[in-house]
Nucleic acid binder design. Structure first.
Lengths: 145, 145
DNA sequence: GCTTGACCTTGCCACCATGGCAAGGTTGAG
DNA sequence: CTCAACCTTGCCATGGTGGCAAGGTCAAGC
């Protein structure tokens, strides 16, 4: 099977299949005499595994770990779970950060009249964001001259 | 004022100050005879504005729009609000995507015993992710053997 | 005046995951 | 034999940031 078929069956682009090979995520497949990459069903399964892990947001490094565990008959499911939990934590951290941004942004949007007048709380608060972060004290009082 | 002071006062790194200049986000500042960038308080204010917008996750392109509005005395706050609302929508889209990943991942984690046994639902579902996505129809039914 | 250290300059490489393009080789069908 | 559809490699781009290197500048101490 050539790369286009393997890519289509696994749900990846040709590009990414080559990329995953180049970064060592997958073993280089066999080559035809002309140098074409030749994929087996096992290869396709592994690529599909990668594609699915990517849709869950796992990084290349994490997928590398998952692939090792996948191929290890003596693995403990504890190890797999640990990788997943680390990733879950990362997702939650990102969500937390997005929530922080979202909250601040919503506050600012609520204060902006959104009319024809140039006055806008959003621009004002971007000048001095501390108005939206009460916990943070002003750091340069000498500029209040 | 040299770049290090401007960067420190605005909350950016020297690197990013130069970067924002190189991508045209800010006007090139004056230069000393030796070629050192010279920043005014106005420059620092603008850099601080950028720094604050970045902590809210605005992209360079969006900040470019915000800076134009900031400098335009005839702006309508409606326009500013529109930029902010677009960004808010992007944040919500990202959160939505993270939530999707998180939900799937949590389901899988819950099904994994996390013991010494090699059997693991996480690896299983990464082979055939459709088990976790009931809304998505199976695309390769012949492999359900 | 000279040295030294702290600053400045530009430019390149790296991340991460992905897409695009280009120049060239291969294969199979008509 | 030709043509289209495939394959190859390699480079550039995204976005925002950091790092490093090689070179110039400046001010302070001696």
């Amino acid at each position: 099977m050539n790369i286009s078929d393997a890519a289509r069956l696994s749900g990846l682009s040709n590009k990414m299949v080559r990329h995953y090979e180049s970064v060592g995520l997958i073993n280089p497949p066999a080559r035809s005499q002309a140098g074409y990459r030749q994929y087996s069903q096992n290869n396709v399964d592994e690529l599909a595994f990668i594609a699915h892990a990517r849709t869950l947001g796992f990084s290349i490094a994490q997928i590398s770990d998952l692939l090792s565990l996948r191929h290890d008959p003596h693995r403990a499911s504890r190890e797999v779970k640990a990788v997943a939990q680390r990733h879950l934590q990362e997702l939650e951290d990102k969500m937390q950060e997005l929530r922080r941004m979202k909250t601040l942004l919503q506050d600012m949007i609520a204060k902006c009249p959104g009319d024809d007048d140039p006055h806008c709380a959003i621009l004002q608060e971007l000048e001095v964001p501390d108005t939206a972060v009460p916990g943070k004290s002003v750091s340069d009082p000498e500029r209040t001259s």
